[in-house]
Write a protein that binds this DNA or RNA. Structure first.
Lengths: 126, 126
DNA sequence: TAAGTGTACTATTATTGTTAATACAGTTAA
DNA sequence: TTAACTGTATTAACAATAATAGTACACTTA
């Protein structure tokens, strides 16, 4: 389910966070679906449970999952856990990256097209 | 010219890279303009010259500046140093971030508007 | 009770960021 | 040529972070 690059300079837990976010946003992982447990996933990926826990904690902070002691960790429904602060942060990051894209010579129309694509495949699954 | 947050968890050299990129892309720093020297900027910011050098090396790697031994470091003209690899990388990052923005409920129209704004202020200065 | 879950803590190692000091090579002007 | 500036490289030391390891505790469920 997850492919990790142990040699990468990007920390393992960050790789995990990114992949999870991707799977959740693409609805591969459905709302309220249970995620593999900390120990189970650690064993499957042959890494330390603490690293998984760190990734889960970060995902919970970012509002993508919720964890219940004794039960497990679950995908947060889309409309939950969306604070204004997180939205502002994403907007700022996006502005920087869009400026860089334009600076690199990527046509504005290509960017508009990208948004249309992503927006179209958003609600409708694939 | 530069404000640093020494307490931030973001490395100093990364903060420098980001600010420099911003100044270059907004044409506050003009093409072929000479940047402050490694030692000079280090003294001004009261940080170590090695940290400046690390930032400059990264900026050169990313194609934003060029350095000449014995002469100094200079802003790379817009049409130089834009390899396809860098463009692909930015596109991938952008796709991730745009997906997250839409997932967070930011309207597609707001994103289109952001692009139009940035694109308009691109060539025309301010 | 037993086995699963998340969570917390301490300790250890490896990697990275930062500083420090020094040195070398190229440029430029006196 | 000399002096003072440039970028660049290297080594050492320290702090912070990433990751592993081991253990423990609290909660849930069958």
């Amino acid at each position: 389910m997850f492919e990790l690059d142990l040699r990468s300079r990007k920390p393992i837990y960050e790789q995990l966070v990114d992949k999870m976010k991707e799977l959740i946003m693409n609805e591969v992982l459905k709302p309220d679906e249970q995620l593999p447990s900390v120990r189970q996933l650690a064993q499957q990926l042959t890494i330390n449970p603490n690293t998984i826990q760190k990734a889960y904690r970060e995902l919970e902070l970012q509002g993508f999952i919720y964890s219940l002691k004794g039960k497990g960790s679950f995908v947060n429904p889309m409309d939950a856990g969306k604070d204004a602060e997180k939205i502002m942060q994403v907007k700022l990051e996006l502005e920087k990256l869009l400026l860089e894209a334009l600076y690199l010579g990527i046509p504005a129309e290509e960017l508009h097209g990208l948004i249309r694509e992503l927006d179209a495949s958003k609600g409708g699954g694939e």
